[in-house]
Write a protein that binds this DNA or RNA. Sequence first.
DNA 1: AAGCCGGGGTT
DNA 2: AACCCAGGCTT
Length: 346
Amino acid sequence: MLFSKNLISWYLENKRDLPWRSTGDPYRIWLSEIILQQTRVAQGTPYYYKFIEAFPTVFDLAEASEEEVLKLWQGLGYYSRARNLQTAAQFVVEDLDGKFPDNYKDLIKLKGVGEYTASAIASICFKEPVAVVDGNVYRVLSRIFGIDTPINSTEGQKQFKEKANRLLDRKNPADFNQGLMEFGALHCTPRRPLCDNCPFSSECVAFNRIQIAYLPVKLKKQKVRKRHFNYLVFISEENKTILQQRKGKGIWQGLYEFPLVETYSEATAENLVQEEAYGYYSVPSSSKVDLFNIEPVVHKLSHQHIFTKFWIVNCEELPQQGISFTEAGKLPVPVLIEKFIDTFDF
DNA sequence: AAGCCGGGGTT
DNA sequence: AACCCAGGCTT
């Protein structure tokens, strides 16, 4: 009780003025929460404005094409969020008569809405007493209460969820939840938290034991996979090129890229031609292949490092249907491709 | 339970 | 280079 009271008063004095804090519209809160999944406020905010402008209501979003949504989402990453966003919007319009769900149980049925997001929307928009547990909450609670169960273990998730729900101010879950996250984002930060000016320092277990650096506990780190991508940048005499859509599983699903030859190690012009001979792409024998970048471009994802070579293929006619560079610029592409296009400057 | 899914900021 | 970010889905 004292904890929640202190927390909420800290929040009311220190909270940032963010665009989604001036609305009670569950559609807008939902949109902001999806955008902010694993994404910093500073990175997500421009996208929030773009989406609200392009799709002021859930009906507008439901009617858009998937390509339009992906193009607006371009650069934000985790593209399944964009696809799920639209699936959920269409579900709300077609199955719920355009009325957004107003409780946790129904919210979590939406594609892309998990325990965290359902709790956030339910508490913020409808004052339902359900505690959120995100990265901030793990950090703040583990430190103040000295909980050293790994936050990415099943036991840890259960434990932190129970703790948050016991602490929750059931009369004001909106400010409690946002306050806990805001406190983690602004004050109890991962590195160098502001302990000398902390309203909880007298009771904080980590501070009293000088163990801030050791909490929260997180199990192992995933090792990074290294991949070698070779993009064939076709350029015809008509100044057209080839982009194709990534399908199936894996990264960048639904986005467009140049024809890709992936190799197990760094490719040379010789073995690249051999790879092609295996039937991926037929490069017209009359065409000239030039390596654009001597040193591979390293594109780093959280779980993969992609070493990339761009091969310029000048040819009279394209081996398949091509598009102009102007059209290519309108398609959603990974940041890796976007940066190349900007550099190459057709 | 573990693996996969982006891009960028911070240290 | 490692860690983290208003996590969720698939296997």
